[in-house]
Structure formats: C-alpha cells, structure tokens
Design a protein around this nucleic acid. Structure first.
Lengths: 327, 327
DNA sequence: GGTCCGGACTGGAACGTTCCAGATCGTCGA
DNA sequence: TCGACGATCTGGAACGTTCCAGTCCGGACC
C-alpha cells in the first residue's frame, strides 16, 4: 500500500515550488503554459490526487453535500436522492449518503459525522430526526428537509409535496370513474398521513359524500385491517384510497383473497407511485410525488443559502396522479 | 451561521492549553479528573465537535468506510449495505455511501472522492467499475468487492455467493417437485449470469435432463422473451428458473397473460429473494444470497487488511432457497 | 537538603493544502 | 541606461487537529 503522493512530491519531481503545482493543477491563469503541462504530466504519472481533507481544512468548504436518509428500502426516498445527485453534480458538488434505519440515536450520530466533515450543505430525507439535533446541525451548516412538512425549527428550509392536493386527486379520479363509496386507509400520526386524510375528507365533502367518509386505521396498534375492510366491503364500499402504496397492496391482497375483483368490485388508489406500483397485478393507480424535482429543489435551496440567503424557504410541489389498472 | 468552535476556543475558555483539551476530550488517562470534567462541560456548552478533516489529516486515518453502490433501486445491493453498516459500527467506523447509477465515469469519480477523503477502506457493490480504476484505488486504500467474482486485479479482496450452487438449489427443488422440463432465462454477459447458467446446465445433467436444457436470453439485444416463452410452453416446459427476480416476474406476468396458472401449469424460481418476491402474486420462490452476511464479511476483510494482511482473500458464501407459492 | 520520580500540563511541529505577500526576471518606453 | 511593469514563480502562514518532547511541581527517599 503505497502512500499517496502529495503536492510536495510532484513539486520535487518537477523542480518547482509546491505553490506552483497547486496553482497549475487548479488551472490558475498565471501559470506558464509549458510549465503547467509539464506539471500536469508529472502529476498524472505519480497518480497525484488532491487531498480533500487538507483542502477542506484550509478553504472552509469541501464541495461535499451530505444526505441523511433513513431508509434505503423506500424507493420514494431513493428517487429523491437521484434528484439531489443530478442537481448537485450540476453545481460541482459531490454527494455523500449516510443511512440510518429508524434509530434516532444513530441518525443523529450520522448527522454529526457529516457536519464534522464540514460538508457544505445537508439534505435530510427522514422524519425520524429530532428537532433538537436538526437545529444543532442547521446552526453550522445549511440544511433542508425533504418530504417532511417544515419542522418547527428556525433556519431550516424544506421541500414537500402537497399531500392534501394529492388526496384530492385520488378521490376526484375515483368519483369521476363512478365510485360513490370511497374509504380511506390511514396509519401513523405523521404529518403526511394526517394531511392525506384531511385531503380525503375535504374532497369527499366537496363531492357531497361527507356522510360516507370512512377511515380505516392501519397503524400497528390499530384494529386489524382485515376486519375493517370486510366491514367496509359489506357496507358496499367500492373504492379505497390508501395512504401509501404498501397499504394499497395490502388492501388489494385482501380483496383478492376474499374473491373480489380489482378494480371491478373494488377500485384502489395508492400514494407514492413506487416501483412496486408498476410491478404488481393489477398495476396500481397511485399519486405521484415529483421526487426527482424535490431533490433538485432541495439542492437549489442549499445553493441559495450558500449564496447568502438567510430567511427560511418552504417549497410545496404539486403531485400528479398516475392512472393504472387498479381503478 | 455561527462558525464552529475549535479546540482553541474551548481551551481559552477553560484557561488551559489546546493540547490538554484534546487529551481530555479523548479520555486520556493522564488528565486530572477535575479538569477533565471542567473541560467536558465547557466543550458541551460551546457545542464543540471534533473536526474530522483536521483529525484525519494528522492521523492518516479517518475512521470512515466508503461504500460505492451503483444502484439504490436494487434491494439486493441495499441489503448488503445494511450488513456493511452494522459490522462497521461494531468496529467504530462510519459508513459513507456514494451512488453512481451505471455511468462508469461518474462511478470512478466517486471512487476518487472517497479516496480523496482518506477513507480507511472501500466496499464496492457494483460491477460497473473498470479494473483500472479499481486497481488505482486499491493501491492506496484497502478495497473489497461484493457480489462480483474477483476482478482480475491484484490487491483486491472479494465476497461473492456461489451462483452455481444457487442454480443447483433451484433446479433440484423443481425436479424434486416433479417438474421435468425446466427452462432457464438468462441475460447479459456478466459473470454472475454465466455462473447461474453453468449451474443450471450442470444440475440438469445431474438429473439426466441434459437433453431438455433450454436457455432463453432476455438480454436487450436478444430475441423477445415472449416469443421464446411461448415456444417453450408449446414444447411442454413446466418450469422456469430465471437468473433474477425481475426476470422471473416477467415470466410470471407473461404466463398469466397467456392464461396459464402459476405454479400449476408453470413453476417459476427467481434469484435474489428481493423484497418484491414477497409482495407479488403469487409469491415468488427465489434463491437467497446471504446479503447481510456478505456485507459483514466485507467489513471483516477490510479490518484484516488494516491490521496488516497483504495476501488477497476471496470469500464465497453459500446461498439458500426460499420456497414460496410460485413452485 | 538534594535528588529523583511521576503526575499534570504545555508548546511547537506536523499533516497537505490554499492563499497572500512578495521575489525574480526579461522587456519596454523614455 | 534605468526604472517600471507584467508575467511567472516562491516561501511562509494558516486551517484544526494529534503527537511528541518537554516543563513544572510536590513529595518520597536517602
């Protein structure tokens, strides 16, 4: 394992000062054309690579962008990452990902690792981090949260999608298709779930269906999904809007087990338009959040902060509906 | 955005030298108990965090472990990451992920970013990196490849699973279930695909079925999967072993479209035991690579290298078969 | 009472860069 | 011929740590 060559090594070989090598390799215009080439050749020969640690230390910025993500299994999250990466590259930033399951302690620790590395900015795709830790990180480094409605913390930007609108899209679509009894499967106390539920209820009212609003809780502690569904089916419900795709699959699974046809007997709409939605039978109609765009906007907000903006920004993007065979 | 406090700041407040603060915070036994506490309190008050850049620069190691992954969408990859993370944490290492789609140039660049950061070790979960880049990185930093049969490069360790054995498990299972005409869906020229195909052919021979060996190519350039499947079905094939789960889903999809029953008319086995395998109808029987263990072994190999091992190690782990409704 | 010892602490060098204030040198105009 | 000037290059400080060689001091020992 050979030690990596330094500026000094290159300088010694080229017979110039380390400063000149630094200038030459960074393309400084004040370096003679012939020397620049000579230095470049020698650097390549030696396999010289600039040391990010040293550069970051002296410059105070690293051109690194840290992304904290709580779940790699969730394609909703990883597609946001793709958007972040693309936008970051366009700004000359490298993206470092840290992944922390749902362990709050570990996530906070990872946040520390990244701030300790002096990353230029942070993107948090996780609702499992505590405000306190977020605030501490944001005090030192620009931070934007994606997918989580703005935490009640100053100094943090956010990018979310309009969950109420998404729910409205789903209900409108079902009603337009002739369904009249639309149930909603919810779960958890997270803001996104609550917003979707609010959107569902509002849309039902708008269609004059307030009296058939029915919400089934899929939370671990809640009543069994199966029983609630059986009851709803018995009561003549012909459509379900689920809070996310996974819940929608469970509904479809159960309906098929009961011998119902989807969508003939029961139409189902999910939320997230995950990769799964395109792979299952029947293909799932789902509300699509503009994930790549969310990632791109997050980077844009960070760059603005680096440029000096000081007031908080909270962007809300509009979801769309992807219609497939389940409705 | 307040600048982060340094050792100097803490030292000034505590009225001691920066060296002592450094020793105290690192728990050096030569520091008086009272002073250590005083320093600790002040550090906490100021929100002091050690600067990874500076520490890495002087120590030559960063306690960081870099993971290069080409696809976040592939659960096979992300589960390996989970194994890496768990093992890394046990060794006091933080894991940094970089993700590079299938763009070789970008992946190589990310490899550079990580080596430039002086990570202590590299785990590569991608078969899209060129030997040349891998070799260059491995010259400076211990590197282990996961899931890719050892590249023809010196100085690199690897962890793979035994693809031939996996294929044998699949065929044995199908034959034991009474199937006699087992086709294989392959694709690509990657070593893993080739090994699975070899394993399929060998197992068929072993069962005296060498004369019904049939391999269908699903490569983009190859003949259409649909036609080849129709032909196989027409020829009385009653089972398919696919090179991965995605291919298996395509087979099932097509069979269902043709009005066949799975598994009654056609049994299907996939490879990878991905999350999808548990979610589709019918649930997919699949060969399961011990992914978390692969990640853990990768870290173990790196730690050995850091401990001074110099000869290359190539670990081959044994896959298992997860039987579900598709067979 | 002097010497030695060990615990507690300090100062400066080093890590590999960037940045800044110069140094060097040939050329050009007067 | 001389100074000024621009182009090209250099040396050292700085970044925030760790590490090493000391310094300082009170007490034990002879």
């Amino acid at each position: 394992m050979t030690p990596r060559p330094t500026l000094r090594d290159v300088a010694a070989r080229a017979g110039v000062s380390k400063s000149l090598v630094s200038l030459a390799l960074r393309g400084d215009p004040g370096v003679g054309e012939r020397t620049r080439e000579r230095i470049q050749v020698i650097a390549d020969e030696l396999g010289y690579r600039s040391n990010v640690l040293a550069r970051g230390l002296v410059q105070g910025r690293t051109h690194l962008l840290g992304v904290v993500i709580s779940s790699l299994e969730n394609p909703y999250h990883t597609e946001i990452v793709a958007g972040v990466e693309e936008a970051a590259e366009a700004h000359g930033l490298s993206v470092l990902l840290v992944h922390g399951s749902r362990d709050r302690g570990r996530l906070a620790q990872h946040l520390d690792t990244l701030t300790g590395l002096n990353v230029d900015g942070l993107v948090v795709i996780s609702s499992w981090l505590e405000d306190e830790h977020l605030a501490a990180a944001a005090r030192r480094t620009p931070l934007v949260m994606v997918g989580r409605s703005h935490a009640p913390v100053q100094g943090i930007d956010s990018v979310t999608n309009d969950d109420e609108l998404g729910a409205a899209l789903a209900v409108d679509h079902l009603v337009a298709a002739g369904r009249t009894r639309v149930a909603h499967v919810t779960g958890g106390r997270r803001p996104a779930a609550l917003a979707r539920r609010r959107g569902y209820e509002a849309a039902m009212s708008r269609h004059g269906l307030a009296d058939v609003v029915r919400v089934v809780d899929r939370s671990p502690g809640g009543p069994a999904l199966q029983d609630a569904l059986d009851e709803a089916i018995h009561d003549g419900y012909d459509a379900v809007f689920a809070r996310n795709d996974v819940a929608a699959f469970d509904v479809i699974d159960h309906a098929l087990d009961r011998g119902l046809r989807v969508p003939a007997d029961l139409a189902v709409v999910g939320y997230d338009d995950s990769a799964l939605a395109r792979r299952t039978r029947p293909r799932l109609t789902s509300v699509n959040q503009p994930r790549e765009r969310m990632g791109a906007r997050a980077v844009a907000l960070l760059v603005e902060r680096l440029g000096g903006r000081t007031d908080d920004q909270h962007e809300v993007l509009r979801p769309t509906l992807t219609v497939r065979a389940s409705t």
